[in-house]
């Protein structure tokens, strides 16, 4: 038997259960396994940040529309170079306006990746949601809406920095008896 030698002369005519393994193919196998796993390993983890385009679906004549009070929406304006403006609006009416200082600190990571984080903005959005946010219960299927206003020339990394800050506040979300943490806001872009 190549590679494995089985001692057949056990006590009382029985075969012994011990067997000798040939070291060379075993080490070869381990080396090949390690090489395969190292080659197929994923070292950079890609993830996603969600956004909702808020496109209305087709009209449903079979479903009766119930008139509900318009919800409060958080408008995040990033048009000024030195500050962000957070505006809570309800059906076009401004409820509150808050200015948050803006510092564009770009940190260079490995592979020319530029990291932009707005910690102060994230803290402010979190505290605002805790006081003004309307959908905080785990059983609530709706989410608070955030609308991002940006200049046309703004680089994408700053947009992601702001969306990342908007997604900082988390809430419970219960589906099928399972509760998980989800971002408290849905983000969409302002058209103009």
């Amino acid at each position: 038997m190549a590679g494995v030698s089985v001692d057949s002369g056990g006590k009382g005519g029985r075969r012994t259960t011990d067997s000798e393994i040939n070291m060379i193919p075993m080490i070869d196998l381990l080396m090949v396994t390690i090489s395969f796993l190292l080659i197929t390993a994923v070292w950079t983890h890609m993830s996603r940040i969600n956004a909702d385009a808020q496109v209305p679906g087709p009209p449903r004549p079979d479903v009766e529309e119930t008139k509900t009070e318009p919800e409060k929406q958080l408008h995040v304006e990033m048009r000024q170079p030195d500050h962000f403006t957070l505006v809570w609006k309800q059906s076009g009416t401004i409820i509150t306006t808050i200015d948050v200082p803006r510092k564009d600190n770009i940190e260079k990571l490995q592979g020319n990746i530029k990291k932009v984080q707005f910690t102060e903005l994230a803290d402010k959005i979190e505290s605002e949601w805790k006081t003004v946010g309307q959908h905080r219960d785990g059983s609530d299927k709706k989410f608070d809406q955030a609308i991002l206003h940006t200049d046309n020339d703004t680089p994408y990394m700053f947009i992601i920095g702001v969306i990342d800050a908007i997604y900082r506040p988390k809430r419970d979300y219960t589906v099928g008896g399972k509760t998980e943490k989800m971002p408290a806001f849905n983000v969409t872009f302002a058209v103009n």
């Binding site: 993830s47 940040i49 020319n112 990394m157 992601i160 969306i163 990342d164 971002p183």
Partner: peptide, 13 residues
């Protein structure tokens, strides 16, 4: 394509 980094993320789909 150099993707920007983010912290509050979800798994890829």
């Amino acid at each position: 394509v150099t993707l920007p980094p983010a912290e509050n993320i979800q798994d890829m789909i």
